[in-house]
Protein backbone atom coordinates (compact mmCIF):
# COMPACT_ATOMS: atom_id res chain seq x y z
CA UNK A 1 0.00 0.00 0.00
CA UNK A 2 2.80 2.37 0.94
CA UNK A 3 4.56 1.61 -2.30
CA UNK A 4 1.42 2.39 -4.31
CA UNK A 5 1.02 5.72 -2.53
CA UNK A 6 4.66 6.52 -3.26
CA UNK A 7 4.20 5.73 -6.96
CA UNK A 8 1.16 8.00 -7.04
CA UNK A 9 2.78 10.95 -5.30
CA UNK A 10 6.00 10.61 -7.25
CA UNK A 11 4.04 10.80 -10.50
CA UNK A 12 2.09 13.85 -9.35
CA UNK A 13 5.02 15.85 -7.97
CA UNK A 14 8.69 14.94 -8.37
CA UNK A 15 8.46 12.63 -11.39
CA UNK A 16 5.71 14.65 -13.01
CA UNK A 17 5.33 13.70 -16.66
CA UNK A 18 5.69 17.24 -17.93
CA UNK A 19 8.52 18.51 -15.76
CA UNK A 20 10.57 15.40 -15.27
CA UNK A 21 10.08 13.19 -18.32
CA UNK A 22 9.17 15.96 -20.81
CA UNK A 23 6.22 13.96 -22.11
CA UNK A 24 3.12 15.72 -23.36
CA UNK A 25 4.93 19.00 -23.94
CA UNK A 26 3.00 19.77 -27.14
CA UNK A 27 -0.47 19.87 -25.49
CA UNK A 28 1.18 21.44 -22.44
CA UNK A 29 2.21 24.43 -24.53
CA UNK A 30 -0.74 24.26 -26.90
CA UNK A 31 -3.77 24.21 -24.61
CA UNK A 32 -2.43 25.75 -21.41
CA UNK A 33 -3.60 29.25 -22.32
CA UNK A 34 -7.04 28.99 -20.64
CA UNK A 35 -8.05 27.21 -17.45
CA UNK A 36 -11.20 25.72 -19.05
CA UNK A 37 -9.26 24.09 -21.86
CA UNK A 38 -6.60 22.87 -19.47
CA UNK A 39 -9.21 21.16 -17.27
CA UNK A 40 -10.84 19.46 -20.26
CA UNK A 41 -7.55 18.24 -21.68
CA UNK A 42 -6.34 17.09 -18.28
CA UNK A 43 -9.42 14.97 -17.59
CA UNK A 44 -9.41 13.49 -21.08
CA UNK A 45 -5.75 12.52 -20.74
CA UNK A 46 -6.20 10.99 -17.28
CA UNK A 47 -9.15 8.95 -18.53
CA UNK A 48 -7.49 7.62 -21.68
CA UNK A 49 -4.16 7.08 -19.93
CA UNK A 50 -5.67 4.81 -17.28
CA UNK A 51 -7.75 2.90 -19.81
CA UNK A 52 -4.84 2.50 -22.24
CA UNK A 53 -2.58 1.18 -19.51
CA UNK A 54 -5.18 -1.41 -18.46
CA UNK A 55 -5.61 -2.65 -22.04
CA UNK A 56 -1.90 -2.58 -22.89
CA UNK A 57 -0.99 -4.43 -19.70
CA UNK A 58 -3.30 -7.31 -20.57
CA UNK A 59 -2.26 -7.40 -24.21
CA UNK A 60 1.44 -7.24 -23.38
CA UNK A 61 1.44 -9.87 -20.66
CA UNK A 62 -1.19 -12.24 -22.00
CA UNK A 63 -0.43 -12.08 -25.73
CA UNK A 64 2.94 -10.59 -26.60
CA UNK A 65 5.04 -12.15 -23.85
CA UNK A 66 3.41 -15.54 -24.16
CA UNK A 67 4.07 -15.80 -27.89
CA UNK A 68 7.47 -14.02 -27.83
CA UNK A 69 6.20 -11.10 -29.85
CA UNK A 70 7.70 -8.32 -27.74
CA UNK A 71 9.24 -6.70 -30.80
CA UNK A 72 5.72 -5.82 -31.95
CA UNK A 73 4.98 -3.79 -28.84
CA UNK A 74 5.34 -0.31 -30.38
CA UNK A 75 3.05 -1.11 -33.29
CA UNK A 76 0.51 -2.84 -31.03
CA UNK A 77 0.51 -0.18 -28.30
CA UNK A 78 -0.01 2.72 -30.67
CA UNK A 79 -2.84 0.89 -32.42
CA UNK A 80 -4.48 0.08 -29.08
CA UNK A 81 -4.26 3.73 -28.07
CA UNK A 82 -5.57 5.03 -31.40
CA UNK A 83 -8.53 2.64 -31.48
CA UNK A 84 -9.25 3.20 -27.80
CA UNK A 85 -9.49 6.94 -28.38
CA UNK A 86 -11.92 6.32 -31.24
CA UNK A 87 -14.09 4.02 -29.13
CA UNK A 88 -14.10 6.34 -26.14
CA UNK A 89 -15.15 9.16 -28.43
CA UNK A 90 -18.04 7.16 -29.94
CA UNK A 91 -19.14 5.78 -26.57
CA UNK A 92 -19.19 9.16 -24.89
CA UNK A 93 -21.09 10.76 -27.76
CA UNK A 94 -23.88 8.17 -27.42
CA UNK A 95 -24.08 7.81 -23.63
CA UNK A 96 -22.79 10.92 -21.84
CA UNK A 97 -23.23 13.82 -24.27
CA UNK A 98 -22.40 16.48 -21.68
CA UNK A 99 -19.02 14.90 -20.95
CA UNK A 100 -18.49 14.45 -24.69
CA UNK A 101 -19.10 18.12 -25.32
CA UNK A 102 -16.54 19.14 -22.73
CA UNK A 103 -13.88 16.57 -23.71
CA UNK A 104 -14.84 16.22 -27.38
CA UNK A 105 -12.33 18.43 -29.13
CA UNK A 106 -9.42 17.15 -27.05
CA UNK A 107 -9.96 13.45 -27.65
CA UNK A 108 -8.54 13.18 -31.20
CA UNK A 109 -5.45 15.11 -30.10
CA UNK A 110 -4.69 12.52 -27.47
CA UNK A 111 -3.62 9.81 -29.91
CA UNK A 112 -0.40 11.67 -30.60
CA UNK A 113 0.14 12.74 -27.00
CA UNK A 114 3.46 11.15 -26.18
CA UNK A 115 2.56 10.87 -22.50
CA UNK A 116 0.06 8.08 -23.29
CA UNK A 117 2.47 5.94 -25.30
CA UNK A 118 5.16 6.90 -22.80
CA UNK A 119 3.21 5.52 -19.87
CA UNK A 120 2.66 2.16 -21.54
CA UNK A 121 6.37 1.94 -22.37
CA UNK A 122 7.42 2.85 -18.83
CA UNK A 123 5.02 0.20 -17.56
CA UNK A 124 6.92 -2.41 -19.58
CA UNK A 125 10.40 -1.08 -18.74
CA UNK A 126 9.73 -0.95 -14.98
CA UNK A 127 7.98 -4.30 -14.98
CA UNK A 128 5.05 -3.08 -12.85
CA UNK A 129 2.30 -5.52 -11.89
CA UNK A 130 -1.30 -4.76 -12.79
CA UNK A 131 -2.29 -2.67 -9.75
CA UNK A 132 0.98 -0.74 -9.79
CA UNK A 133 0.49 0.04 -13.49
CA UNK A 134 -3.02 1.38 -12.93
CA UNK A 135 -1.90 3.57 -10.02
CA UNK A 136 1.11 4.72 -12.06
CA UNK A 137 -1.10 5.69 -15.00
CA UNK A 138 -3.71 7.42 -12.87
CA UNK A 139 -1.02 9.32 -10.99
CA UNK A 140 0.58 10.31 -14.28
CA UNK A 141 -2.73 11.67 -15.53
CA UNK A 142 -3.41 13.59 -12.32
CA UNK A 143 0.12 15.01 -12.45
CA UNK A 144 -0.38 16.08 -16.05
CA UNK A 145 -3.67 17.80 -15.18
CA UNK A 146 -1.98 19.47 -12.23
CA UNK A 147 0.88 20.78 -14.39
CA UNK A 148 -1.54 22.00 -17.05
CA UNK A 149 -3.72 23.83 -14.50
CA UNK A 150 -0.80 25.62 -12.82
CA UNK A 151 0.52 26.68 -16.20
CA UNK A 152 -2.88 27.88 -17.40
CA UNK A 153 -3.33 29.95 -14.24
CA UNK A 154 0.02 31.62 -14.77
CA UNK A 155 -0.53 32.21 -18.47
CA UNK A 156 -3.90 33.86 -17.92
CA UNK A 157 -2.13 36.46 -15.78
CA UNK A 158 0.79 36.67 -18.18
CA UNK A 159 -1.41 38.41 -20.73
CA UNK A 160 -1.22 41.54 -18.59
CA UNK A 161 2.55 41.39 -18.02
CA UNK A 162 5.05 43.34 -20.13
CA UNK A 163 6.96 40.48 -21.79
CA UNK A 164 9.92 41.39 -24.07
CA UNK A 165 9.00 41.11 -27.75
CA UNK A 166 11.30 38.19 -28.59
CA UNK A 167 10.20 36.13 -25.59
CA UNK A 168 6.50 36.30 -26.47
CA UNK A 169 4.75 32.99 -27.07
CA UNK A 170 6.73 29.82 -26.63
CA UNK A 171 9.88 31.44 -25.22
CA UNK A 172 8.35 32.76 -22.02
CA UNK A 173 6.22 29.61 -21.60
CA UNK A 174 9.35 27.47 -21.63
CA UNK A 175 11.13 29.70 -19.15
CA UNK A 176 8.14 29.53 -16.78
CA UNK A 177 8.02 25.76 -17.20
CA UNK A 178 11.70 25.70 -16.24
CA UNK A 179 11.07 27.68 -13.06
CA UNK A 180 8.15 25.38 -12.16
CA UNK A 181 10.31 22.31 -12.80
CA UNK A 182 12.91 23.82 -10.51
CA UNK A 183 10.29 24.34 -7.80
CA UNK A 184 9.09 20.76 -8.02
CA UNK A 185 12.63 19.42 -7.87
CA UNK A 186 12.69 20.83 -4.36
CA UNK A 187 10.31 18.06 -3.32
CA UNK A 188 12.73 15.34 -4.40
CA UNK A 189 13.80 14.49 -0.87
CA UNK A 190 10.19 13.71 0.01
CA UNK A 191 10.09 10.55 -2.07
CA UNK A 192 12.93 8.09 -2.19
Amino acid sequence: MKQLLLIFFAMVTTNNFVWHYFLGICPFIGVSNKIDNATGMGFAVTFVMTLATIFCWFIYHLLLVRYNLEFLQYVVFILVIASLVQFVEMYLRKTIPTLYRSLGIFLPLITTNCAILGITLFMVIRDYNFIQSVVFAFGGGVGFTFALLIMAGIRENLDLAPVPESFKGAGITLIIAGILALAFMGLTGLIK
Binding site: F22, S166, A170, L174, G178
Partner: peptide, 22 residues
Amino acid sequence: SLPPGAFFTLGILMSIINTFAN
Protein backbone atom coordinates in the same frame (compact mmCIF):
# COMPACT_ATOMS: atom_id res chain seq x y z
CA SER B 1 21.96 18.66 -16.93
CA LEU B 2 18.70 18.51 -14.98
CA PRO B 3 15.20 18.98 -16.44
CA PRO B 4 14.83 22.74 -15.66
CA GLY B 5 18.02 23.47 -17.62
CA ALA B 6 16.41 22.03 -20.73
CA PHE B 7 13.44 24.39 -20.48
CA PHE B 8 15.64 27.43 -19.84
CA THR B 9 18.06 26.67 -22.68
CA LEU B 10 15.33 26.05 -25.24
CA GLY B 11 13.37 29.13 -24.14
CA ILE B 12 16.41 31.39 -24.44
CA LEU B 13 17.60 29.89 -27.75
CA MET B 14 14.11 30.34 -29.16
CA SER B 15 13.97 33.99 -28.16
CA ILE B 16 17.42 34.65 -29.67
CA ILE B 17 16.30 33.10 -32.93
CA ASN B 18 13.08 35.12 -32.84
CA THR B 19 15.07 38.32 -32.37
CA PHE B 20 17.12 37.57 -35.47
CA ALA B 21 14.07 36.61 -37.49
CA ASN B 22 12.23 39.79 -36.47
